[in-house]
């Protein structure tokens, strides 16, 4: 139970200090630290990353959602193909999904050319991959549960009964 509470706190904001999480959950600070260490050691928590609104930066960041269809055979399963693709640093997310295609792959790069080259030279030639459909991200409105718009402004009065 307390493990879950700590996990929820970290999911909300991974930069909460152990002391703040302890205050929120009525745990001791060292208990929180121990739980976080356990979560990391058990591979439940795999990492901590910033949620970035790339549109706010000068630097271009190109992202694409790629639909992949694959053909399996006796020697090759989904996980074999996934292992091979996931090793590429350009691939930021890879999921087996239900529906019209098999894998949903997210790719990042510095330019459209770079991403296109990666798909055509590294992904499409994989023998089991029968089809790729690439969707370039034009605008992002929400990432990791965080809305990237201006949000709902807090226009409450500073005092109210």
């Amino acid at each position: 139970m307390s493990e879950r509470e700590v996990l929820e706190s970290l999911r909300e904001n991974a930069r909460y200090s152990a002391a703040d999480i302890a205050r929120m959950t009525d745990l001791e600070e060292d208990e929180v630290e121990a739980i976080i260490e356990e979560l990391e050691a058990a591979g439940v928590v795999r990492g901590y990353q910033a949620v970035v609104d790339w549109d706010k930066l000068e630097d271009e960041r190109v992202r694409a959602e790629v639909e992949l269809n694959v053909r399996l055979d006796r020697e090759t399963g989904y996980s074999d193909i996934a292992d091979r693709l996931a090793r590429f640093p350009q691939v930021t997310a890879l999921r087996l999904v239900s529906g019209d295609y098999d894998f949903d792959m997210e790719v990042e790069g510095d330019s459209i050319r770079e991403v296109s080259q990666f798909i055509s030279e590294k992904v499409a030639p994989v023998p089991e991959i029968t089809q790729t459909v690439t969707h370039y991200v034009m605008t992002s409105y929400k990432e990791n549960g965080i809305e990237l718009g201006d949000g709902d402004e807090d226009d409450r009065l500073s005092f109210s009964p």
Binding site: S158, F159, S160
Partner: peptide, 11 residues
């Protein structure tokens, strides 16, 4: 720069 903890309604 006022932080208000004087508000009687949800944020």
């Amino acid at each position: 720069d006022v932080i208000s903890l004087g508000v009687g309604e949800p944020d």
